[in-house]
Nucleic acid binder design. Sequence first.
DNA 1: GTGGTCTAGACCACT
DNA 2: GTGGTCTAGACCACC
Lengths: 132, 132, 132, 132
Amino acid sequence: MDPIHFVQINTGSPEPIYRQLVEQVKRRVAAGQLKAGDEIPSVRELAQALAVHPMTISKAYSLLESDGVLERRRGLSMVVAAQHRRAQPTADRVELLRPTLEKAAAEARQLELPKAQAVQLFKTILDEQGAS
Amino acid sequence: MDPIHFVQINTGSPEPIYRQLVEQVKRRVAAGQLKAGDEIPSVRELAQALAVHPMTISKAYSLLESDGVLERRRGLSMVVAAQHRRAQPTADRVELLRPTLEKAAAEARQLELPKAQAVQLFKTILDEQGAS
Amino acid sequence: MDPIHFVQINTGSPEPIYRQLVEQVKRRVAAGQLKAGDEIPSVRELAQALAVHPMTISKAYSLLESDGVLERRRGLSMVVAAQHRRAQPTADRVELLRPTLEKAAAEARQLELPKAQAVQLFKTILDEQGAS
Amino acid sequence: MDPIHFVQINTGSPEPIYRQLVEQVKRRVAAGQLKAGDEIPSVRELAQALAVHPMTISKAYSLLESDGVLERRRGLSMVVAAQHRRAQPTADRVELLRPTLEKAAAEARQLELPKAQAVQLFKTILDEQGAS
DNA sequence: GTGGTCTAGACCACT
DNA sequence: GTGGTCTAGACCACC
């Protein structure tokens, strides 16, 4: 896998880099873009491509391993784990969106916005991002 | 204002407490639940009610003051500021929801979810929370 | 808790320091020596007491937190988590010994040692260590 | 010797493969299952049978050679060395079990387990593994 | 080549 | 004060 297209990070974000990596990889596995057995870029490779310290990458990979998303192969690069229930069907995948949408809904409630307005804004934003 | 109903915090959330306070107050002001001149609970009162360190409350209040949402009255408790156009019309208020929904839309794109599915989940969650 | 008596590490061991910490803390919690709500030494305190780098301690604490043994209190020192099923009765606690004894049993089998000899050695070693 | 039955490895274990090989061979020699002069599988054969990198096998064999357990015969496969007193009597062999049982005893002490409980678990595990 | 561990030390966020 | 994040860089073990 080309390290450049593996993940993108935003160093300006308040979200730590290692967590951006973890969540992006999880989403790509859930979306089926990464499949069981796929090799991922080595720590050093990705660190260089993203211009971050190798230990930052390593921390992300370790967390992904303890979450069962990646598998270590001693002396070799890591691979996407043989999946328990990954490459999920859409119905399951959509649940990964739930936490963020719950936050949005709570905010809408506190703003006393009518449901229709909140939904309309979400549709607009999805269109802006070119969703299908 | 009864401190108990003024704001609610979630100590388990990764979002810092002082920021939860700031954003909740801003939303309640935008929604018109808090109006110019309304008194807010004192630092000590709220700190005790929420079981939080007083300095955390103080930090939130200071930020709200520097954002022009609250006003300090020497020797008295703080009040909601008069200036600016608060209790915004719905069309403006909805924009306060944008950042979170943009995050959700970005996640939906990475999960390769069709727009309809994402929107449907949002509607479901809004209903669960009893939105109108 | 006095950092000196909190844990002991052996820098000569092939087992990484952070893992020695993790396992010792888990055992002490299981044994009931550490109870829910007990404060543990701060990262810096323990790092100095053990003469290791603070990040090594931090890594151990993070793992213990993700295992549900410790709880983070933002801005304050960590505490032993409100237990799910910790401070276990002896019958459950003894199971924590299983992995190592399984390894010993596998070795005994490969050495074609009679069961009685292996057990006798174990008893001898327990006596040497002053077990009751 | 059939490579398949020569040794078994567990790639999931934290113990390095080369060390698993070394210790298993030593135990089988001590137990008398491998006798002086017995041929062992070639590096390539065993590497293929275990699906392991040949260099890993080679490293294990080299260590066994430098420990005097195996002997290299130029151009031919390696054999179990003749020197030393192998196929040790039971009284000596049992000492090879000591390091692992010492680790178990230390854990038992930290768990504050009574000696009888620890011994009982060991007996149970030995029975499960069909020890005599 | 691979990842893992540890140190040294800076800077930040939170209470 | 607390812990978290990141960098720089050394050294090790494994394949």
